Amino acid sequence: MNQFAVAEVEVGPIEAHEWDAAAQAYTAALPDDPVSGAELRRRDEEQRGWNYHAEVLVARQNAEVIGSAFYFQNPGAYHPQRFTLELGVRPDRQGQGAGAALWAALEAALRGLNAESARILAREDNEVATGFLARRGFVGDKRYFTSALDLTTFDAAPYQALEARLAAQGIRLRSLTELRAAGAPDLDARLHALMSDVRQDVPRADPATPLSFEVFKEAVLEDPALLLGGYLVAEHGGQFIGQTTLFRSEASPDLLTGLTGVTRDWRGKGVATLLKLGAIRAGQAMGGTLIRTDNASDNAPMLAINDRLGFVRDPASVSYQRVF
């Protein structure tokens, strides 16, 4: 072996001591989608607990983890033969065959499961990722925008009239912390019903499927990344009419927006903006400096709200599909 030789890449299932290294490799490759080892392990365990097909694979050079890949099934758009993929290789180890080896292992596993198709996201300005996917038969279709808001400079003054108008109509925001402290009856079931309602019309790459109460409770309410003070519900006359959520990964100080949605009868009346304002204030109270959110490019109403609030869009991410 001469000084320019590259060590062979070996791919296999993740081992118990490799979760942190796998997450670090993925986050280094995709810093806009950070994940910790504990979070990656939890997601894998959840999938298996729901009896879905899922596996985390790692690429190693000289026993060092340099890349990782994950195939799983989306409970909110479930189909027994459709899968979601994640794949990342440390930037300093790209171009040495790790990505190709991970994809070969993913493809073999998916074919063994009789997969119909698989999806993966890639930013359209990432020529390495988009070229990698195109060469392997992936075709891009749905586009998404990730946007960020600087909480240190946000000015809520222009929205005082909106907030006063909605307050006069009897609409108020209540956090999950407040609702639990108040002993709201059947709270978890009501939150599940609200999320199930408002998510139906959210644009997505694949059709929405019902989210079971079990999945909702484990994936949302029991997620360690959920910020209880940032889970906000809009209430009117004792009825829940809208929601938004905030999360924070162990791998990043940024605040991440989950689902923001309003029941059909209340759309177009400023409730979604009120929820966004509440989340911004909650984030500021928690010491956050940046909120990130993502929306499909055809979700014009929510994109317009975010634009007015001052969210700045990153280059679009594209959902690439591989049909088998």
Rank of each mutant, 00 (worst) to 15 (best):
S252A: 07
P91I: 13
S212P: 08
N2E: 10
A16K: 14
A285D: 15
L211E: 09
R111L: 13
I171D: 09
F216Y: 15
E222Q: 13
A69W: 05
R135L: 15
V271F: 07
A164C: 08
D150C: 06
A156T: 12
L133Q: 13
R199K: 10
I14E: 00
S297W: 07
E18I: 15
V271G: 07
R136Q: 12
G238A: 06
P315V: 09
S196R: 13
E235T: 11
Q96W: 00
L309H: 06
A219G: 06
A219W: 04
A108F: 02
F213W: 14
R42F: 05
G97F: 08
E55A: 11
L256W: 06
Q73Y: 09
F216M: 14
A108V: 02
V89K: 01
T289A: 09
M195A: 08
P34S: 14
E214H: 08
L246M: 08
A16Y: 07
G95S: 03
T260I: 08
L113H: 09
A168V: 00
R204N: 14
E39L: 14
E18C: 10
Q243I: 05
L211S: 04
D141W: 09
E163I: 02
G310I: 00
Q284F: 01
L151W: 01
R313C: 06
A251N: 06
R119W: 04
G97L: 10
E107H: 10
A300L: 15
V220I: 12
A184D: 01
E178S: 04
T130H: 05
V312Y: 05
R48N: 05
D206Q: 11
L57R: 02
K269Q: 15
A115Q: 06
E218P: 12
A104W: 08
L277Q: 09
L187A: 01
G76F: 02
D298L: 08
A69C: 03
Q47V: 13
L187T: 01
L309W: 10
H53Y: 05
P207F: 10
E178M: 02
G230V: 10
R308F: 00
W19Q: 04
A38V: 05
D298V: 15
G95R: 00
S175D: 07
V56Y: 11
H17P: 06
G170H: 02
W50G: 13
Q96A: 07
Q160P: 02
L179S: 02
E8N: 14
F4C: 12
E46Q: 15
A5G: 04
F154N: 00
A7I: 09
E127A: 15
N126P: 04
P224K: 03
T263G: 11
K269S: 06
R313T: 14
L228K: 09
A105H: 03
S297H: 09
G99F: 06
G229S: 08
L246T: 04
L227T: 07
P203Y: 09
G12E: 09
T263S: 13
A272C: 01
R172K: 02
A148H: 14
N2I: 07
A251L: 08
Y231T: 11
G76C: 11
Y231Q: 02
Q239K: 12
E8G: 10
A101R: 03
P75H: 10
R322S: 00
Q321M: 11
G238C: 06
A69H: 11
L30S: 02
V318C: 07
Q169E: 14
G37F: 02
L290A: 13
L87T: 07
A25V: 09
D155Q: 01
L113S: 14
Y231R: 02
E15Y: 10
P91R: 04
M286C: 14
V271N: 02
